[in-house]
Design a protein around this nucleic acid. Structure first.
Lengths: 108, 108
DNA sequence: AAGACAGTTCGTATTTTTGCGAACAACAAA
DNA sequence: TTTGTTGTTCGCAAAAATACGAACTGTCTT
């Protein structure tokens, strides 16, 4: 049907997935997931990109809800947003675990 | 370090995530995951976008390895690529299940 | 007041993504 | 041979993503 939009769940997973859809952002998330928290500078240090670009990627991850940051003058502390991280974990697990394809009439 | 690249795992998750990072593609994957397989026309029918656009999204999902398609003249049958789907399931589960953040020194 | 420090924001350039209609290809049916 | 059916590909336009240096903000330190 041409009128129907996408479900809220599809859009939410797409939002999370889009945020995770860049190697630099995956590296940031990996780095943050390994510890309780860290500063912008620590993140910048392990990435091969300019600080302005790091800042932009952090903003996107924050907008997607996967991380959060707070000023700890003169630095900025970033960490995983545990609540949404858990939501993402559940959504991806449910979605990817729900394939009905048996292969019996499948391509290949 | 400015010289290091991203890990293969980070790039692989990013590839899958990028493919899933659009509502239309999530809708396609949802639709395909519900059944063994279906034709292009069935997919086009449930999406609010032009067939050329649907074809493009299908191509991206295929390039990412999440689906596969085969000609069944005069139609084209699409289905989930079970092998990579399972790989994606494992990668996302491992990644999202591996957060060390305790909240003890976390923002918020 | 002047610097130094830690990040963010701005302006800009390049590339990629998204979307569509029109044209096309392949094949079956009339 | 002409027509119809099913999708893909092409060409284009608009929007978004990516990346960077320069400039800026706010807060300490001197």
């Amino acid at each position: 049907m041409k009128t129907k939009q996408y479900t809220e769940e599809q859009e939410q997973i797409a939002r999370f997935a889009k945020a995770m859809g860049h190697p630099a952002r995956m590296a940031i998330l990996s780095f943050l997931a390994k510890q309780d928290s860290c500063f912008f500078g620590d993140i910048h240090e392990v990435l091969p990109i300019a600080k302005a670009t790091v800042s932009q990627h952090l903003k996107e991850l924050k907008d997607a809800g996967l991380i959060q940051g707070e000023i700890e003058t003169p630095k900025v502390r970033y960490c995983i947003n545990r609540e949404n991280w858990e939501l993402a974990r559940k959504l991806f697990a449910a979605f990817l675990g729900d394939c009905k394809c048996t292969g019996t009439s499948c391509c290949g």
